[in-house]
Amino acid sequence: MVNGIYPNNSKVKSQLNLADDDLIRLLQSLSCAKYKILIKEPSNTTVSSSDYFELNSKFTDKMRRIRVPLPPVDERKKVVDDVGKDRRYAIDAYIVRVMKSRKVLPDQQLVAECSEQLSSMFKPDLKAIKKQMEDLITRDYLERDQDNPNLFKYFA
């Protein structure tokens, strides 16, 4: 950083060995967080490729070590969504597997068996199991008994 840097400067990216998103997150942490180690022009909280950064020569702090947190990555939300989707598929598979072998089951017994089998993979939420049971009804895998609504039938 001789005079200043731009986020789209390939020399800075190659020296830091960072991807574009990571470089922007790092620059945002250094210029927009509690400790303003870098001065950013224009002075706002978002970082774009046209922003200009330079070292804050007036920066001082009595602490010897400063922790500069990175802003959170949106990947975490994507991972949580993917895990949720995988769990829904696993719940569907176990419900269909149990119902295929039993043909007719009361809802509480079906929930208990699925919960027991899924517990080796993850702690299943009972609401999620019931939601997937209703979803399987709409997709014509299961049906409720006409006489007893608490009884499920496998729809082959």
Rank of each mutant, 00 (worst) to 15 (best):
Ser48Cys: 04
Ala128Trp: 03
Ser119Phe: 07
Leu55Tyr: 12
Ser120Leu: 14
Arg25Trp: 13
Ala33Gly: 15
Val98Pro: 00
Ile66Glu: 02
Ile39Pro: 03
Arg102Leu: 08
Gln15Gly: 09
Ile66Tyr: 08
Lys130Val: 01
Arg102Val: 01
Pro124Ser: 09
Cys32Asn: 15
Lys127Arg: 09
Pro124Cys: 06
Leu26Lys: 03
Arg97Trp: 07
Asp22Arg: 09
Asp125Lys: 08
Gln108Val: 00
Ser120Arg: 13
Thr60Val: 08
Ile95Met: 04
Ser57Lys: 13
Asp22Lys: 07
Pro149Ser: 08
Glu116His: 10
Lys58Pro: 04
Ser50Pro: 03
Val12Thr: 13
Ser49Cys: 10
Val79Phe: 04
Lys58Ala: 15
Ser50Cys: 14
Glu134Val: 03
Ser119Gln: 11
Tyr52Val: 14
Ile66Thr: 06
Pro72Thr: 07
Asp145Leu: 11
Gln146Glu: 13
Leu118Gly: 02
Leu110Pro: 01
Arg88Lys: 14
Gly4Asn: 02
Ile39Phe: 02
Pro149Ile: 00
Ile39Ser: 11
Ile91Glu: 00
Ser101Asp: 06
Ser29Gln: 07
Lys13Gln: 11
Ser31Asn: 13
Tyr94Leu: 00
Asp82Leu: 13
Phe155Thr: 01
Lys123Tyr: 04
Tyr89His: 15
Ala112Glu: 08
Lys78Gln: 07
Val96Phe: 02
Gln146Trp: 06
Ala19Met: 05
Asn8Pro: 06
Val68Lys: 01
Phe152His: 06
Thr46Phe: 04
Tyr52Leu: 12
Ser120Gly: 05
Ser14Met: 11
Ser101Ile: 06
Ile37His: 08
Leu16Gln: 08
Met121Asn: 05
Glu143Ala: 11
Thr46Met: 05
Asp22His: 10
Thr138His: 08
Ile95Thr: 02
Asn56His: 12
Lys11Ser: 12
Ser57Pro: 09
Leu30Pro: 01
Leu38Cys: 13
Thr46Val: 11
Tyr89Ala: 15
Asp20Gly: 04
Asn9His: 14
Met1Ser: 14
Gln28Pro: 00
Arg87Glu: 11
Ser49Trp: 07
Leu105Asn: 00
Asn8Cys: 14
Arg97Lys: 09
Ile24Ser: 06
Leu142His: 14
Lys36Val: 04
Tyr94Arg: 03
Val83Pro: 08
Met121Tyr: 08
Lys123Asn: 08
Glu41Asp: 11
Ile66Met: 04
Ser31Arg: 12
Ser57Arg: 13
Leu16Asp: 05
Asp82Ala: 13
Asn148Gly: 06
Ser10Ile: 06
Glu143Arg: 14
Ala112His: 05
